[in-house]
């Protein structure tokens, strides 16, 4: 049972300011190669940093993954969303290449009906706010960092 929370000022779920633009040397969003086994190659060639990825995961202005996913590994954060499946043990269910594909563009990796945003995709909705036009939600390196972090979620 859930005790009802007073959520008065807890803030908007997904509003944010940070944006991301492609860096030279990164695989550009339109050039990402999806295979049946996921996205095999790193987007940057630089190994992901799981500690940074952990921060991207919870940060409301970056991944804000906690908006939709329960993640027992981040107990210090108060609010975990229920819109997506819990990510406990995600690395037991998916390979690194699959996790990379899901984060880059879940519509391509999971189902085109999903609510989950494509974090490194430019196939966006209409009327993108001009602050974010032509930009991906995360940078290529932030994607690699999140993937490194997700790869640590084992049960």
């Amino acid at each position: 049972m859930r005790t009802i929370l007073k959520m008065g000022l807890a803030g908007a779920c997904l509003a944010a300011l940070a944006t991301a633009t492609a860096q030279a040397g990164d695989v550009a969003p339109m050039d990402v190669k999806f295979t049946d086994d996921g996205v095999m190659a790193s987007l940057t060639g630089v190994a992901g940093d799981a500690a940074k990825g952990r921060e991207v995961f919870s940060n409301r202005k970056l991944g804000n993954c906690l908006a939709c996913h329960v993640n027992a590994e981040q107990k210090e954060h108060s609010f975990h969303g229920e819109v997506g499946p819990p990510l406990d043990g995600a690395a037991d269910r998916y390979s690194e290449a699959e996790l990379r594909a899901i984060v880059i563009n879940s519509k391509q990796a999971l189902t085109d009906k999903t609510i989950m945003p494509g974090f490194y995709s430019l196939k966006l909705g209409v009327r993108v706010n001009k602050k974010f036009a032509g930009k991906t939600i995360l940078t290529a390196q932030q994607v690699e960092d999140v993937v490194a972090y997700l790869s640590t979620l084992k049960e």
Binding site: R2, A10, V70, K75, F79, H80, P86
Partner: peptide, 15 residues
């Protein structure tokens, strides 16, 4: 998970 409420309320949520 412990939902240490940001405001006054705190509660327990069983995922």
């Amino acid at each position: 998970l412990k939902w240490a409420g940001l405001l006054a309320a705190a509660s327990i949520f069983a995922a």
